[in-house]
Design a protein around this nucleic acid. Structure first.
Lengths: 124, 124, 124, 124
DNA sequence: GTGGTCTAGACCACC
DNA sequence: GTGGTCTAGACCACA
């Protein structure tokens, strides 16, 4: 996994986990990987994952069963969707619209950029 | 001027100046405010503005006439547009597209959000 | 390390680091000293080193692994050579040629000066 | 007249005047242009010329006859030559040799650079 | 007056 | 621990 420079790695992992939950790769009640496992898998520092999990708990997306591990919480899919939507509307949209207006980008252009971007991702 | 927390102030001022240039508030050949003036106006430390101006010079958006001040460079509008476009495409788009895909937002919805956002701004 | 008066300290450190890279004292992938370490070693303020490192990153001579440190980038030797060459051709050559013309110094003389200078250095 | 960025304008004018003296465009006993005249001719701030003349006086290249003006001093050609030579040997040579050694530039290359540089100047 | 640089010290997010 | 940023205040060369 490679990360954008603009955002903290642990937050990008939070979003990635939201993705897993929304796509139902991870479902309510599933045990999620241990800090060390995920750190190895994503090739990041375990502290970073620990911070991610802290964040997920405070968002009540996962719950801690002490001594056993972390588990995907109830209604996780809704919560994950809600979280991403909030991020999107509060953080991205305003700046994005500002750019679009200033740079005079049409919806057609945007659509085109979208499809080229999708293709790029599929190649990787 | 109030600043977002996520980006360095001096870079937000760079973007703000790009906007001034694109909107032709500042035009090629114009003298831009002195470090100290702008620092007072935007209520930041003069060093922060100095950093902004250093950046603008490295981007060749302004040129320094020694001992006199900084002046908006030739082709500044194109350069400013290019810079903002690059920022947009590299920093905002990928995250945005990720959100759109995950949240399953259609271009129609986006368009709608855009127009409601415009209306909001006009009311302010 | 002692510094010339005519050029900013942080830029002299940039050149010094280019030299380290060209001489392969620092190689691609190596971790470079932390801001605080190098500041102590060169007896300057940490901010000055931070400025140097900022410059090196914008030149893509080093890359930042967040929270870990800076590492010498790929192709750093070529980039460092190119940078110094540019400095030489733009900053030193024109003045030098001017002197040579005015003082009517021949290439033979220059060559001779060069070799005496080399000998001097070897004695030190 | 256009100036290098690496050196103070008033010092570049000092060198230019040394050039005039060495090339015997200005000779011992000649009255040199007034501050205002030269400022207009070279398109710089009169203060800059004033500073140049201050420097020339301290170098004893020109002498002040009060109320009349500045005049080229005795032995000016030797002094001018000596000054430039000193500048060259102390300021340019060491740095230049350092670059040549690091970048592995041969005397042939240098010679070539010299001739291309001369041609450039003649075109201007 | 202008911008450029440096020091000092602080705080921050991140790993 | 890492680098990044900001403030405060100072000094400088230059025009």
């Amino acid at each position: 996994m490679d990360f954008r420079e603009t955002q903290a790695i642990y937050l990008q992992i939070v979003e990635w986990i939201c993705e897993q939950i929304i796509l139902q790769v991870w479902n309510t009640g599933d045990k999620i990987p241990s800090v060390r496992e995920l750190a190895v898998e994503l090739e990041v520092n375990p502290n970073t994952i620990a911070r991610t999990y802290e964040q997920l708990q405070s968002m009540e997306l996962v719950v801690n069963k002490r001594g056993i591990g972390l588990f995907v919480a109830d209604h996780s899919k809704d919560k994950a969707t809600e979280y991403l939507k909030k991020q999107f509307i509060e953080k991205n949209l305003p700046q994005m619209f500002n750019y679009i207006k200033l740079l005079d980008i049409s919806m057609e252009e945007l659509n085109e950029l979208y499809h080229t971007s999708i293709k790029k991702q599929q190649k990787l």
